[in-house]
Amino acid sequence: MGGLLEVKDLTVQRGGIAVLSGVGFTLDAGAALILRGANGSGKTTLLRTVAGLQPPMAGTVRVAPDAIAYAAHADGVKAVLTVAENLRFWAGVYGSVAIEDALAAFDLGGLAERPAQALSAGQKRRLGLARLIVTGRPVWVLDEPTVSLDRAAVGLFASAVQAHLAAGGAALIATHIDLGIDAAELDVTPCRAIATTAQGVFDEAFR
């Protein structure tokens, strides 16, 4: 038996064009992997493929069904619902009930009854990340989770990830900053499948 998440020879596509090819890694319980790469290098496409939102062009993603909790740029936060209502909804969808841990982990306790539309960008992001805790799923697949977070919130996020890893989870995180987590790094640049422009820089149109 391998790890929680095994990716072998994966080729991912965007709009029918291969973006990354030959990507392979294994995530064991308690391990995290940081994805590095320039803007437009295909990190999001890779993460969406791993999360099962789009089919791989080639290669395999082996993961237990219903193991992945995915979080992307958009938080899926409903503006007219309060923080607690937003979290309670996702908790209900994932069949858990307690949202207190998630509120505490991201220091949202004082904001629980506030409508999400009255939150700042960073607070909204914290709410989006708190959702990961209520999913109760072992593999976190996170796409630039620290965008718009301040230094303290990044610290909260890092400790939430560490608590998740300590509890036997795993995390695959695309980010540009140093999270202060003890984790392996994977630079996707060598896996680039296409020469996008004459200058050889990545096409910004790919997100």
Partner: peptide
Amino acid sequence: LDFEDGSLDLLATAPI
């Protein structure tokens, strides 16, 4: 609306 705020992606990966 769910597509724009990302909820639809999250629902697609949810156990529903």
